[in-house]
């Protein structure tokens, strides 16, 4: 009996040995399949903060952050700018839970910096827009300013300069208002570390450049352009413009196209040109076109992104509002070409 058992075992081993001669492992695929099945049951992985990784050194990251931006920060201020109130509250709670009765964190939050930075951004953005678009009515300046200082834009900028992993806050993933607040406070920290002119360059390079490839009319466009145009021209002593149909194609078809030009009645000069699928739409587009020519926001304008703080107009200066806009009362401001020339002369 014993010999029979041993022979059986030997036979088994021989059999398995034969199997092992195969060039691949028969157990591999079923194992992987089982592992995949278990992983699928677990559901998708939650995102983890980068600080939980082994290769993470907060000081290195902060150093790289300021070097990346090419700015000199005061380290304490930068740390304060990146600290949210929610983080301090959470950490104090944690210490209390552990048993520390009077938790000390040695951290201050960025609340003051946020309001300071916010004011600075508002000021610089408005001054910049008034300098480069001196003919645009104040309503338009406000519209573009609203876009540039919205939470969407600021959080986009903030994320792409790499703040999202450095922010100390309670929530994860970091929310958009937090990102935008941190950008504001970083700018305030920069004002205190390197001065207004560096901070203005920062705002110019990261926030104002966001309108570089955008259509300015998506932020603000006057309602009732035909009425507005005749009002504005009346203020300059020009009679209301005369629309003329100067081209049409595909009339009475689904692809109809009309072209209307606006002419001044006095000297028969064309001041606007518009297309449309009906005559009314073409008339309105022509009025819009002539308003764009008056306001200096045609599609082919190039905004200068090279102005410095001392080249911007004063904070108190405002563009004309729509209800007082007239070519006669336009404020005189140097164009950016003149500003650039002046800069070159002074540097020589």
């Amino acid at each position: 009996m014993l010999t029979l058992r041993t022979t059986n075992r030997v036979l088994k081993v021989l059999k398995t040995a034969q199997k092992c001669e195969q060039s691949f492992h028969r157990w591999l695929a079923p194992t992987l399949r089982e592992l995949k099945r278990r992983k699928d049951i677990q559901g998708p992985e939650k995102p983890v903060h980068r600080k939980t990784f082994l290769e993470w050194n907060y000081d290195t990251e902060i150093y790289a952050f300021s070097k990346r931006l090419g700015e000199e920060f005061n380290n304490d201020l930068l740390q304060q700018a990146l600290t949210e109130r929610s983080y301090i509250i959470r950490e104090e709670e944690r210490q209390k839970n552990v048993g520390i009765e009077q938790p000390t964190l040695n951290l201050s939050d960025n609340k003051e910096l946020v309001s300071k930075g916010s004011d600075f951004i508002d000021d610089i953005v408005k001054r910049y827009l008034r300098t480069v678009l001196p003919r645009l009515p104040e309503e338009g300046i406000i519209g573009i300013h609203k876009y540039l200082t919205s939470i969407e834009t600021l959080s986009h900028v903030s994320f792409h300069i790499g703040t999202s992993e450095l922010i100390l806050c309670a929530e994860f993933p970091v929310e958009k208002p937090t990102l935008s607040n941190v950008l504001k406070s970083i700018i305030a920290a920069l004002i205190e570390s390197s001065g207004d002119s560096r901070a203005a360059l920062f705002v110019r390079d990261f926030i104002i450049t966001q309108i570089a490839d955008k259509d300015l009319h998506q932020f603000w466009e006057p309602e009732e352009p035909i009425k507005l145009l005749s009002e504005i021209l009346a203020r300059d002593g020009i009679q209301s413009p005369e629309p003329r149909l100067i081209g049409c194609s595909g009339k009475n078809t689904i692809l109809a196209c009309f072209r209307v030009g606006l002419y001044t009645p006095d000297n028969k000069r064309m001041i606007g040109l518009g297309f449309g699928e009906t005559v009314d739409i073409a008339h309105e587009m022509a009025a819009r076109d002539s308003l764009r020519q008056l306001f200096g926001t045609l599609d082919n304008i190039l905004l200068p992104f090279n102005l410095k703080l001392d080249q911007l107009c004063a904070s108190s200066v405002k563009n004309l509002f729509l209800n007082e806009w007239s070519q006669k009362t336009l404020p005189f401001r140097p164009t950016h070409f003149e500003l650039r020339q002046a800069k070159e002369i002074s540097s020589n």
């Binding site: 290769e55 990346r68 790499g162 990261f206 104002i208 450049t209 570089a212």
Partner: peptide, 18 residues
């Protein structure tokens, strides 16, 4: 290009290497 990089100032987009 991300964030109009280069219109204002150029930022090296690589933030971390391990």
């Amino acid at each position: 290009v991300p964030l109009q990089n280069g219109i204002g100032r150029y930022i090296c987009q690589l933030k971390r290497v391990t």
